[in-house]
């Protein structure tokens, strides 16, 4: 496993564009901290976002993993191009001739995906922990380390999404088209949802939609904004009451893990069936 990871990291390490994108991604992850600096001070209206409780433990885990997941597109570009460039440079062929098996080739890519996701998760954990320790109102250990399942969901979500990118890279063989396909797919899921909602009812529609890959991934971490006490108190004042289910359910994780396995298996199958 170390050998396969080492091979793939060697390819990434010497590619300038991949390096820039990966660094940008981690810088952006850090930039969540900048939210803390959002502060309005207009006469009587004083507004300091960090003081509104967004960095309170354990809410900070939910909020930060939701926001951080938005930046995954940067790594997606790296992953799609690390796959499709192997086709356009014909280095895939050379790798196989040099003695890498097709299985090892896919595994080396998959390990890299897992490593990048793991690195993001650890990074997110550290950034959130620091932000929380600075701004949170509660700093008891038991509270700090509750709701950590959001980080697990974040990790699963990234692995699933990147595996999808990997699969698209192999399927389409060109990075620009593969990324285009990703957007089109997002769009297609949106349309299917719309059609289902129109023909049945919202409940049935979302029950079916939870099985679609991108929807399953976004279901993992629900939007955190309505959970914020400040938002809820405003809602209460205008007579609304939010009653959403923010928890992460085992079946949601199972669906995404299922898709991940399927994407990797399909990538292997495609590679095996194709003549180079």
């Amino acid at each position: 496993m170390y050998r396969l990871l080492n091979i793939e990291l060697h390819k990434l390490k010497h590619s300038r564009s991949s390096k820039i994108l990966i660094i940008t991604y981690f810088v952006l992850l850090t930039s969540i901290a900048l939210v803390a600096a959002i502060k309005f001070d207009i006469g009587p209206i004083q507004f300091h976002l960090a003081e509104m409780g967004i960095f309170n433990f354990p809410y900070v885990w939910h909020f930060n993993s939701y926001i951080s997941a938005l930046f995954k597109l940067f790594l997606a570009i790296v992953i799609v191009s690390m796959m499709s460039n192997e086709y356009s440079n014909k280095t895939l062929k050379q790798n196989l001739i040099d003695g890498l098996s097709k299985k090892e080739f896919i595994l080396s890519k998959f390990y890299t995906v897992v490593l990048l996701s793991l690195a993001s998760t650890i990074f997110l954990f550290i950034v959130s922990l620091i932000l929380g320790l600075i701004f949170s109102s509660y700093t008891e250990l038991s509270i700090i380390f509750s709701d950590l399942e959001y980080l697990i969901a974040f990790f699963i979500k990234l692995v699933g999404f990147f595996s999808f990118c990997l699969f698209l890279g192999i399927l389409v063989k060109r990075s620009a088209f593969a990324l285009g396909f990703l957007f089109v797919w997002q769009f297609v899921e949106g349309i299917i949802f719309g059609v289902l909602r129109w023909n049945t009812n919202p409940d049935i529609a979302s029950t079916i939609m939870q099985f679609f890959p991108l929807n399953a991934m976004s279901n993992l971490i629900k939007e955190p904004f309505t959970r914020l006490s400040a938002v809820q108190s405003v809602a209460n004042q205008i007579g609304e009451k939010f009653n959403f289910d923010y928890a992460i359910h085992w079946y949601e994780i199972a669906i995404v893990v299922g898709w991940t396995a399927l994407f990797i298996f399909l990538s292997y199958l495609l590679l095996k069936k194709r003549d180079l």
Partner: peptide, 18 residues
């Protein structure tokens, strides 16, 4: 077929690893 962005030596190192 080699990685265009790598030098000759880096390319050969990769082959060694494979």
């Amino acid at each position: 077929n080699f990685y265009p962005y790598m030098t000759a030596e880096q390319n050969l190192k990769l082959v060694c690893k494979i």
